[in-house]
């Protein structure tokens, strides 16, 4: 593989290899926990932890892992990190643990994590693997938060921006307006639209992701048409 810069790897993970919109992998948590901004943020953080941990360890062990049994070994490595984040969430952020439910243990079978271990970390040194992990995680988080934000705004007519913060020694997700320095942010931000409850129900999730994918497809098609016209094709 050609030598790439650290930042280049990160950007590739966000745009060219975006796990949700381009690779269409690991959709289950994206659709299930994107009911609100806060849930999406919590899931994105848990995912980032697992993704980075698994990429680093698979990459460190890549010369020791026998090719024949690599998938079970990847799963064991991933499972270790999933168990860690599962226990940490249960101990430090019980409300988030309740909200995410079985989707934290289910990161084990998330195709993105296994896919990156197999396709990238198993073949590359540690530093590019970290970059890949960061990029893929940001790409995943962006998709998740985008979906969560859209669904919360259309479904409830308001948006509650939340942030992980420790207030009076209590770690938790608090509204952004409660955090010093961000008190100018209204809580919640209201929008002048009629809330459509269907958007926070499961069909709304499918509809939102279908609409977003259609939007991205139209955009990339336009770009290609422009490129072809520039090259002199008549379309």
């Amino acid at each position: 593989m050609a030598k790439k810069s650290f930042v280049g790897e990160i950007i590739r993970g966000i745009i060219k290899d975006n796990p949700v919109f381009v690779l269409v992998l690991g959709l289950c948590p994206v659709l299930a926990v994107s009911t609100s901004f806060a849930n999406a943020l919590g899931m994105a953080m848990a995912f980032t932890f697992v993704m980075l941990g698994s990429n680093i360890f698979v990459s460190l062990l890549r010369k020791q892992i026998p090719p024949g049994v690599r998938i079970p070994i990847f799963i064991l490595i991933i499972c270790t990190f999933v168990t860690m984040i599962d226990m940490m969430l249960e101990a430090f952020l019980p409300p988030m643990y309740e909200a995410l439910g079985i989707f934290v243990p289910l990161i084990v079978v998330n195709c993105i994590v296994i896919g990156r271990a197999e396709a990238f970390a198993n073949r590359n040194p540690v530093l590019p693997s970290i970059a890949d992990g960061i990029g893929i995680s940001i790409g995943f988080a962006a998709a998740l938060i985008l979906l969560g934000t859209i669904r919360e705004i259309l479904g409830t007519g308001a948006l509650k921006l939340m942030m992980l913060w420790s207030k009076e020694g209590e770690l938790g997700f608090y509204p952004l307006s409660d955090i010093p320095g961000f008190s100018f942010v209204p809580n919640p931000i209201t929008f002048p639209i009629e809330p459509a409850t269907v958007m926070v129900t499961p069909p709304g999730a499918f509809l939102t992701i279908a609409a977003l994918m259609l939007l991205f497809k139209i955009m990339s098609d336009r770009k290609r048409m422009k490129q072809l016209r520039k090259e002199g094709y008549e379309i």
């Binding site: 269409v24 269907v198 129900t201 499961p202 069909p203 499918f206 509809l207 992701i209 279908a210 994918m213 259609l214 497809k217």
Partner: peptide, 17 residues
């Protein structure tokens, strides 16, 4: 494609819900 799968899923999910 994928997009069609999600539109189809929307329809079937709406029926149940």
């Amino acid at each position: 494609g994928f997009i069609g799968a999600f539109f189809a899923a929307t329809m079937v999910a709406l029926i149940i819900v």
